[in-house]
Amino acid sequence: MAETVVITVKSEAFLKKIVALSAEAITVCDQCGTCSGSCPMIAEMDVTPSQLMRMVQLGQSEALDTKTMWVCASCFACTVRCPRGLDVSKVAEALRQVTLRRSVDHLDIRNIPDDELAELPQIALVSAFRKLTG
């Protein structure tokens, strides 16, 4: 049975919030799928990047529950190709920030085994903590 999505006034507020945080004109996304086809992390995602954009366009705060926004590697492959000149990585960042600013970290250093921690270069750790923790 297909799900019915209810679009409310709150939906508009969510869209506005993400637009403000990302400074991207999310409403002009024409859903061509270029971002999805460009994404190196697509195999790990639960919704495609263009689907994520659609969810935000419709103001669905469920976008915050996606795995997609956390596995984005901020590689800008989509950015240089978007025919509407949008930066999907900024939208993913805005979604992450909404969660992270509620002090809900996505990555916990205690879950990384010591041997891995010892091997990982600083730049990997610094980057991961910048993107995945508040």
């Binding site: 859903q31 799928g33 999805s36 086809g37 697509i42 919704v47 495609t48 263009s50 689907q51």
Partner: peptide, 11 residues
């Protein structure tokens, strides 16, 4: 060619 079928959301 790498493309998303945006109607089925399949890669």
């Amino acid at each position: 060619i790498k493309v998303e079928d945006t109607l089925s959301r399949q890669m």
